[in-house]
Design a protein around this nucleic acid. Structure first.
Lengths: 165, 165
DNA sequence: CGAAGTCGTTTCGATGATCGAACCTTTCGA
DNA sequence: TCGAAAGGTTCGATCATCGAAACGACTTCG
């Protein structure tokens, strides 16, 4: 009675189950890691997310303002102001006026924030490199395809969830 | 000791970079999915986590009490009581006394909670099955090995982070 | 030019999740 | 039997978040 048909069932106890379990476990561990890192640095989850968004924007050369940050974080404007107050007080961020449109505020990360980001990723990168050493190019291609597919699946299901609202 | 090339560097822009980026993206999307699902069901992040822990325990046949839940969630006892109040008021959980030790409270999930869990995982499982259809057994083995290694790496770095405290 | 409207951000008051400390009940050890 | 410890809950305080209102800066229209 093992796998009578490889059709289009959700595969409740089949070959997908292990991968789903591992994905969930990875998600949980990533979340825990973020939490503990933030706790060690006096940063709440929101502050970490905000820093990540600002850093991503900086890396892409994009401008970042409180408004776009609020949208990216799914946070109200006032809560975003509070988060920016915290980050500015902690010295992770600076607010500067946009000379073009003086209503806007331009957000710039400080070296301290860069150090935080480095302290977050560097140890993980080292450990990942260690554990991934034996994966060959074709295996990495497979893994990348899998991760991309999984990301797309999550995004799609989320967007459908949002549409039902 | 120091090998200038291709030895033990963190591989800042190399072959690992893509996979790291994908992992981070997946983590972000998973987190967003949880948030939006919880929002759609009137459950906060903590409540969702609590439900997940209780469900896991139930699936393993383990007893669950407020104390163990608080430890699992890294939450204070009083905050756990509040979360349980919310979950019980929403009908996702029931509190019953442990007949063995009448100080303890036994937590039981209701059918409603089971339905919530199903509503959370089922759509994802369907979409994953769809997108993973073309991965063969040996590819899945590679992926499982990769995910396991990544989970272990995350746990290890987190434990080191905690030890420095 | 000036006045009304719009946009981006902040301030204000309120809500609620979380915490630490004190408390109650039950259990266990001397 | 009595005191200490364990498991939960209650209480007061703190802080992140929200919605509404306010404020300054641009824009459009008269």
């Amino acid at each position: 009675m093992t796998s009578p048909e490889q059709h289009d069932r959700p595969d409740p106890g089949g070959a997908d189950a292990l991968l789903i379990r591992l994905l969930r476990q990875l998600s949980v561990e990533s979340s825990r890691f973020s939490d503990m890192f933030g706790e060690a640095h006096g940063l709440h989850r929101t502050d970490l997310n905000a820093l990540a968004v600002v850093m991503d924007a900086a890396r892409h050369g994009d401008r970042m303002s409180p408004g776009t940050l609020a949208a990216a974080l799914h946070l109200s404007p006032s809560a975003t102001t509070s988060a920016l107050d915290r980050l500015e007080a902690n010295g992770h961020l600076r607010r500067g006026r946009d000379p073009e449109d003086r209503r806007k505020i331009e957000l710039d990360m400080t070296d301290k924030a860069r150090a935080v980001g480095h302290g977050f990723f560097a140890p993980l990168a080292v450990e990942f490199a260690e554990r991934w050493r034996d994966f060959g190019p074709e295996e990495r291609e497979t893994i990348a395809r899998f991760l991309t597919a999984s990301i797309e699946a999550t995004v799609k299901v989320r967007s459908e969830l949002h549409r039902e609202d």
